[in-house]
Simulated assay, not measured.
Amino acid sequence: MRTLLWTLVVLALLAVGADRAADWWAEREVATRLAASQDLGSTPDVDIAGFPFLTQALAREFGEVSATAEDVVVRSGDGELRLARLRVTFTDVTTDRDVSRFAAGRGRAVTTISYGELGRLTGLDVTYVGEGRVRGSREVTVAGQDFDPGVTVRPRLTEGAVRFVDAAAEGSLPPAVTAVVQAAFDVDLPVDGLPYDVRPESLSATTSGLRLVLVGRDLSYAG
C-alpha cells in the first residue's frame, strides 16, 4: 500500500511538472510571437491563467491570457508617446497547434501616461491637482521680467487622441504670460495606434498619471 501511495505521489508530481513545463513553453512562445506581430520594443511577460494547462492546450482554448509589456513607444508623425507599461488581458482565447495564430474574443488594455512623459511632450512641469484636472507651469520671461505662471486643464479623450480642454489660468498674471503655458497644452496625443488593435474607451486623471483603458473585440494576431 505504501509503495502504491508513493507511486501515485510521484506520478502526480511528474504530471504537475509536465503541466508547468508546457505552460512555461507556451507563455514564452506566445510572448515571442506577440512581440513580433505587434512590433514591441521588448518581449512581453505573458501569463496563461487556469490549471491544468494541458487540458486547455489540447482544446486550444484558454479562458484568460495576459501580456504585460514595458517601455512601449507609440509613434505618430514625427512624434512619439512613451508608455512605461502596457498590460492587456485577453479572454476567450484560441490558438492553433504551434501557437502561430492567436485569437481572442475580447482584449482589455490598461496603461498610464505619466506626468513626466507629459512634461517631456509639453515642456511643462505637470502635476495632478484633483477633480480630474492637471496643472502645468514653467518659468516665462516677458519684457525682461520673470514669471512662473500656472494653468490647469482637463484631459479629455476625443477621436482617438488625448486633448486638454477647459484651460484656467491661476492668479492675475498678464494674459501674454499665461498664454505661453496654455499654448503648450495645445497638443494632441494620439492613442489610437497602440499595439494589439485595442481602441481607447476611457481616460481619467489620477495621482500617478493619465490612466487609459482600451478595448478590442474579435482580435487575431499571426506571428
Rank of each mutant, 00 (worst) to 15 (best):
L14S: 13
L14K: 09
D23W: 14
R2G: 15
S204H: 06
G17N: 00
E61S: 14
L8I: 11
E139W: 11
A26Y: 10
G223R: 04
T55C: 06
L54Q: 15
L157M: 07
P175T: 00
L34H: 07
D192F: 05
T91V: 14
L214C: 04
F90M: 05
R120C: 05
D98Q: 12
A169S: 03
V215T: 00
G136I: 07
R85F: 13
R135Y: 07
S172M: 08
S100R: 11
F53H: 03
V30L: 13
V72S: 00
A84I: 01
V30E: 02
V215E: 04
A35V: 03
V162A: 08
E27T: 12
L194G: 03
D188T: 13
A26M: 06
A67G: 04
R28I: 12
T158L: 11
D71R: 10
I48R: 07
A49Y: 10
E139Q: 15
E131T: 03
S100Y: 04
L86N: 03
V73L: 13
Y128S: 04
L173D: 06
A183L: 08
R154C: 02
Y221P: 01
V213D: 06
S220D: 12
T206M: 10
A104R: 01
A143S: 13
V126H: 04
G123W: 03
T127S: 15
V165S: 13
